[in-house]
Every structure is written in structure tokens, then in C-alpha cells.
Design a protein around this nucleic acid. Structure first.
Lengths: 134, 134
DNA sequence: GTACATAGTGACCGAATGGATACCATTGCG
DNA sequence: CGCAATGGTATCCATTCGGTCACTATGTAC
């Protein structure tokens, strides 16, 4: 278990349960990684990297390690050359998918709502510009 | 709209919707603030501060401003002395409550699961200690 | 005139985080 | 021999974030 989560589990008795979820799921690429593994069952490091937008190996490695340390995915190393490493969801990881999907849906709805709002404000700004120009 | 969210809405066309949710809901105290406002309908700055674990005013102010800029809550200033400022959820904020509740439930389940796991490991470590001591 | 209550703001700090760049180990293949 | 393929690591950097401490504005009450 990575240090952060161990701290969470050992020290936070009760409060802020939502922030636990965010601490576990809230890293760069993490929701995408979980969704891809849910969809493809098992993926190698390079496959994951290509399916995401090619984050640097350093970053992808760190996210995968954290998800592994937090118990959401399982890493299998085949001792062969060239190396082969497979990633798949654990039960805990599969159990997080409804929440990941909920995050995705609300985020999409929120972005759509804000885009509409932004368009409205931009249109209004143009009106003002027209008035000023006229 | 605060800069971060404006960037999200203007630049991220499509990907990473889950990370949008996390960008909006993922600050310190934010889920708690939303839950409290959902429960109490309207709260003053000092009331919120006392219901939370008294974060410094600086921190609480920043979280509230971000939530306001992101459209989740409404801030009403009464021009009187001493000052009175009220916070309540917007429609967007109320719409986030199912997600906040889902985050809370999964986080609680996750923490419980990991606590059990930790206890199991600690017990095992004690067994090992006994063996070594014996 | 001075203390109090409320709702903040400004300057600053240390830790964590995403990311860029360079480098590495192994072994089969030509 | 030398190169490619895979799955990384080491080092460093800029930014962000939560948090601390000091400070403020102002009308009322004593």
C-alpha cells in the first residue's frame, strides 16, 4: 500500500470519505487507465501508453504503481527479453468502475453545461462589441 | 468561471471527463462543503468554518471562491457591519450531490476494505514476530 | 476611545505532482 | 558487431496546493 493511502487508512478515522476516493482515483491518467483495463481486460505497458496519449514513461509508470499499491490493479511481470509486463484490474479495481463511470458522466455533463454558458457569455460580449462599434 | 475550469472547457475537447469532475470536486474540504450546504440549505462563512474542522480562513475562502467560480454555489453578501455572507448550492451544485455521495460511499467502503487488509497484514507480522522471538 | 465581531486578504512556505530529458539492461537478429 | 524492442529509472524543473501568520475594514457597544 503506498504511503499516502496507508496514511489515509491508518490516520483518518472517519471524516472526508469522498476525499479518499479522490486521493485514489485523482491522478493524471488514472480514470482513463482504469476504463481501458476494464474494456480490454489485460494490457501491456506499451499498449496502455499508445491507447492513452503517450504520456512519458516516467509518468505512466508512476500512475500504474500507485494504482497497484492502492490495490486497484494487478501487475504481472514475465521474466523474458524483451520484457513483458501485463496490467489488469483487481476486484477492487472492477468495483471502482461504477464510480469512475459516474465521474465521467458528470464531468461530461458539467463541461457541456459550462460550454453552453461560455458561448452565451461570448455571444453577449459580441453584442456589446457591436453596440460599442456601432 | 475560474481559470482552471475555463481552460478545461475551452481546451479539452472531449477526453478525460472524469478528470473534469475531479478538478471541480477535488479540493480540500470541497465535498464536505457541498454536503453541508445540501444539508443546511444556507450557511454563513463562520457557520461553515465551525461545522468543518475550523480550517484557516484563507483556505476556506479559497475553496468557497473556487466552488463559486465553478458555478456550484452562490455567495450572497449583505452589506452591513459586522459583515454577513451566505453560501448556498446552485442548481449545478445540487446536481453534483449524487456524485459526491457516490464518492463518499466508495471512499468509505475502500477505507474499510483496506483497514481489514491492514489488520490482516499486521496480525501476520505479529505471527512472524512470535516465530522469530520463539 | 477602545474592544469586539465578521469575513475576509497578502505574503510566504514546504511538499507533492506532472512532465521533460537522458539513460539503462537484456537478448535475439542480421 | 551493432541495432532494435520493451519496460522501465534517475535527475531535474516549474507549478500548484494546502496551510501558517500577520493584518484589515467598520459599525456598534461599553
Amino acid at each position: 500500500m503506498r504511503e499516502k493511502t496507508e496514511r489515509i487508512v491508518r490516520e483518518w478515522g472517519d471524516a472526508c470519505d469522498a476525499e479518499i476516493s479522490i486521493a485514489v482515483l485523482g491522478g493524471a491518467w488514472k480514470p482513463s487507465i482504469l476504463s481501458l483495463l476494464d474494456e480490454h481486460d489485460v494490457l501491456r505497458f506499451g499498449e496502455l501508453s499508445r491507447l492513452l496519449d503517450e504520456p512519458t514513461a516516467r509518468v505512466l509508470t508512476r500512475q500504474l504503481r500507485e494504482l497497484e499499491d492502492d490495490g486497484l490493479l494487478i501487475r504481472t511481470v514475465y521474466r523474458q527479453v524483451p520484457p513483458k509486463v501485463e496490467y489488469r484490474l483487481s476486484d477492487l479495481g472492477r468495483g471502482s468502475m461504477p464510480l469512475v463511470d459516474a465521474l465521467t458522466r458528470w464531468g461530461a455533463d458539467y463541461a457541456a453545461h459550462q460550454r453552453r454558458e461560455l458561448a452565451r457569455l461570448d455571444a453577449h460580449a459580441e453584442d456589446l462589441g457591436a453596440v460599442v462599434a456601432g
